[in-house]
Nucleic acid binder design. Structure first.
Lengths: 197, 197
DNA sequence: CAAAAATAAACGAACGTTCTTTTATTTAAA
DNA sequence: TTTAAATAAAAGAACGTTCGTTTATTTTTG
């Protein structure tokens, strides 16, 4: 029996992300993907049931990787300031390290696939976040508010900064924008100011 | 000479947005669109040069409408608190009134089309925003910071709230989320707290 | 009746997927 | 140790369908 060449699967995943980021879901065709990955179209169907399964599998794996990196060095029992900072820096680092993956996820999150591929609420990431927020509120390190409000104030600004950085230009007419340590710290401190009692 | 039936063009635009919102750019085919709009495929090409032009035109028109609604009752000379509140409420109202349009724009903004269809920095909206921010900083009603940081803290949380609302469910595992006046005010006050000196 | 709007039908190209064949590797009888 | 059966990976070519777009024609109306 012939063994699977795992580099082929990885090439398929990588090229698929590239195509989606560059041309959108429109631009992802199985035949073009096969060519880009240096593989026969039929080979893709050994690893993935169909086109949607391909997208779904990549999404789930990337989701898991990102969650894992986001939780690195994080403990739900942490003081709110510290916990939020750890998560910000983890996310920012991940984005700098893997811009393609981040870009892919960003596009995923705002497509109809996102609702189609709902993740369950029992995954480690959701659980950790839930505990973290409840702890912080109980200890009076965080103002009491609905999770959605918390999430919107705590992380949406970060993702917007990352989007500015990705697009290689910030607001139209204000010149180039670079997301460096200083800007990150500045924004985080504003967010903390908003959320702390 | 026969006159154009403007309802046809409107039907095409409307159905195109619906298809894109429901199935993504993948799901927008000219033949399906023609059928949905009750029109012949060839008719679409009377109003739009090609598929990309169709998307571009819809995008530009929606962009313009949204900008216009966002600036309703707004004056760049306003006090920062008031100006920001007006914009928040305008955006929120627009989203409640036209969820389809908002959803379409949200999807647009995070697709490769967004970078392809760059808008110029001289449009009334960008200009008004620029003046507003510079005024507020000069009057010491707003902390001094890069525009991108301002934008991220001031509006990203609002758009995230709207996204939660659109998805008909907030964070996984926390029950349903509704974006009402109270939540909006609460979040806005947090944002103001962050941005005011 | 002139002219533009609107259509039905059709074009070649590209789509997702599958069918058939070949290739590589393991297994085990000789 | 040799060799051939067995099996899954991988490939290439092709399937029928749908794609975006155009052409030829009809319909509508100033």
């Amino acid at each position: 029996m012939r063994l699977r060449d795992e580099t082929k699967e990885q090439a398929i995943r990588e090229q698929a992300m590239k195509m989606i980021v560059r041309e959108g879901f429109d631009g992802l065709s199985m035949q073009k993907l096969a060519k880009a990955a240096g593989v026969s179209p039929a080979t893709i169907y050994i690893y993935f049931k169909d086109r949607e399964d391909l997208i779904r599998q990549i999404y789930y794996e990337e989701m898991q990787m990102m969650s894992q990196e986001t939780l690195r060095g994080f403990d739900p029992a942490m003081h709110f300031d510290e916990g939020l900072r750890v998560q910000w820096m983890n996310r920012a680092n991940y984005c700098m390290k893997y811009p393609l993956r981040m870009h892919f996820m960003e596009q995923m999150r705002h497509s109809p696939f996102h609702e189609k591929f709902q993740t369950d609420a029992q995954n480690p990431f959701s659980v950790a976040m839930k505990v973290f927020v409840m702890n912080a509120i109980q200890r009076n390190e965080l103002v009491k508010l609905p999770v959605e409000v918390y999430w919107s104030v705590a992380y949406a600004p970060l993702y917007q900064l990352i989007k500015f950085q990705q697009s290689e230009q910030g607001m139209p007419g204000w010149g180039k924008f670079v997301l460096d340590e200083k800007v990150l710290e500045q924004t985080l401190s504003l967010v903390l100011k908003a959320l702390k009692p």
